[in-house]
Nucleic acid binder design. Sequence first.
DNA 1: CCCCAGATTATCT
DNA 2: GATAATCTGGGGA
Length: 212
Amino acid sequence: MSAPPPWAQLLALPAEEAALGLLGSTLVVRDDDGAEVAVRLTEVEAYSGELDPGSHAYRGRTERTAPMFRPGGRLYVYFTYGMHWCSNIVCGEDGTASALLLRAGQIVRGLDVARARRPAAKSDRDLARGPARLAQALGLTGADSGLELTVGGRAELEVAEPVTPGQVRTGPRVGVTGPGGDGTVFPWRFWLDGEPTVSDYRPGVRRTRRGP
DNA sequence: CCCCAGATTATCT
DNA sequence: GATAATCTGGGGA
């Protein structure tokens, strides 16, 4: 029997409640070679429950989304736009399909490794400014989806002192209504006020079909 | 600074 | 067959 990790209680909460506790905390990912990159989370976005139309779990459990339904404290990594990986920290109780998309952060250790993985970044500020950039800086791919966070393992969390509500700003996820699909827009994007690493928030452009 | 178009494929319908 | 929890470089103001 091993003691539960320090983040166990926090990540057993639904994503929209865990978000406040996770902001300011640091996710550490280690390589086989011992290379380590640590990112202090400055922006997260909650996707919570099978009733959330914006969630990948909305249409039920599939092979891809299975990690979302597992107990909090592991990763859910998905592939999108044909080329990008994006990472989540799974939250909530077993069976609840709740997760926090890691939208942006500040690299606090492993700058050299992160720079090498993100050659397109024009400045250190851009290394993890955006969900796909963050995943790339950490070296996360689909191979890591479902990976459990463990103390001293490939991935772990360094839980920070809770931030005060005054440091946190919230806003809507773009184009996504809340659970119930009744048109309610939930303020389920959370970020630390004044952080330069917080991502731009442009709605994804819908690819319109080229007419003949 | 802003806006736009192209890249590229796993996943689900 | 269509879509996507995005990023980048290029061109204009």
